[in-house]
Every structure is written in C-alpha cells, then in structure tokens.
Design a protein around this nucleic acid. Structure first.
Lengths: 106, 106
DNA sequence: TCCTTTCGTAAGCGTCAACTAACGCGAAGC
DNA sequence: GCTTCGCGTTAGTTGACGCTTACGAAAGGA
C-alpha cells in the first residue's frame, strides 16, 4: 500500500497512469508521449506494476499496459480511512476548543 | 499540491500527522514518540508546514504543532478528482470491451 | 539462419531526501 | 549577565531515485 502511494507521488507516473487508464497502450506508444527515453518509461511502468496499479499483457514482441481499477480502489480506500479518521478527530478537537473559548477556560 | 502528496508519501510524516491531528503537541513531545533524533522530526515538521498540512504556534521557547484541516481537505479534493476522472474512464473502457466481446468483434 | 522490431535490464551518473552531529538562537530562571 | 531549556538550522553523509547509454532477450519475417 505504501508502494502505491509512493508510485502516485511521482508526477510522471500519474501522467502515465492518466494515459493508460482509459485505453490499453503498448510501452512504445506510451513512451512516445513523453520527452524522456523509452527505458525510463519502462522503469516507471515496472514501478506501477509492482504497486498493483497497472497490468501487463504480452502479445508477440509487444507489451500492452492498462490501469488496474482494483489497485486504484485499494489506494483510495486506504486514503479514505486516513481522511475519515483524521477529519473526525479534527472536528472533535475543534468542537472542544470552541467549548473552551465559549465557556471561558483561560 | 504536489508538495502535499510527496509529504504524505513518507510513512514517518503520516505517523507524525496522525499524532498531532487529534491534539496539539510540542516539537519535543512529538520527537519523543519516535526513535530518530529531534532535528529529524523538526525537518519533517517543516516539510509538513510547507505543504500546508500543519500549523505552528509559538509560546515562549516552545513550538506547538497541529494538523491543518484545510490542507488535508485540499489534498483530498485533488485525489478525489483523480479517482473520479479515472474511474469514469475505466468504466467507459470496461463497457466498451464488454460490448466488443458480446457483439463479437474478434 | 539472419535480421528487424519491441521491449526489458544493467551499469553508471547526478540529484534529492532523510538522517546525525554540531552549532546558534530566543525565552525564562537564578 | 550567565545559565539552562527547547527548538530550529547548518554542514556532511548515506541511500534512494530518475534518467541515459549500452546491451540482451524474445517474437516474427525474409
């Protein structure tokens, strides 16, 4: 899960993900969209794949990549939990402070 | 926004954030919860502050830190947009493929 | 069999990031 | 004024990361 978060933290990988979530694309086609070399994209794809955010399909010498909805959903669930937990605590803290100010503690 | 995402990508900073979202804590008290040196925590706090995820309050020689709900909300909104955009595209792609299989393309 | 296409992998380089150790700084307390 | 407490800040080091160049593997056609 931590792997997925770090994978997403990289802007270029987010761009790649945006590219191959709507449609399946070959590695070379993906690389053509960026101004870095093909191996660099290949390494990014490996990271995304290891994070479970992308799946690979081989056909002949070509490898097609596509976003994996389940991976994205898992990452989303993890963050939702983070938000929920924290926002709830923040709300409680804000309410407590409001009470403190209103009732005149200090 | 990218700053906030990178800030969150670090596990230690997530732990710090968990610690000071429910309650306000001094830098030293925060550092006491971890097995790294105090300066390291201080640097993490600076990163979180720069990302708008934390606010600082000085009182005498001590500095208290607390989570900033707005920063968290902004980051959340950014990711929500990411999910929505992508899940919508994924849904469309899945439906298209289903049609392709059902109607017998290949 | 040889060559081409399509791609991953290995090695190396520059840079960034997390950490420690040492120092500096402002606010009390004596 | 001097010391102590509580921090941040500054080198400096180490490891991770993104990138490029060079090479190798696998599939397919002439």
């Amino acid at each position: 899960m931590d792997t997925a978060l770090r994978a997403i933290a990289e802007p270029r990988r987010r761009d790649i993900l945006r590219l191959i979530l709507s449609r399946e694309l070959a590695a070379g086609e993906i690389a053509a969209h960026f101004d870095v070399t093909r191996p660099a994209i290949s390494q990014h794809l490996a990271v995304l794949k290891a994070a479970g955010l992308v799946v690979e399909r081989r056909q002949g010498t070509r490898r097609f990549y596509r976003g994996r909805p389940e991976g994205l959903a898992e990452l989303r669930a993890f963050l939702e939990e983070f938000w929920d937990e924290h926002l709830w605590l923040l709300k409680r803290a804000a309410e407590a402070e409001e009470r403190r100010l209103r009732d005149g503690d200090a």
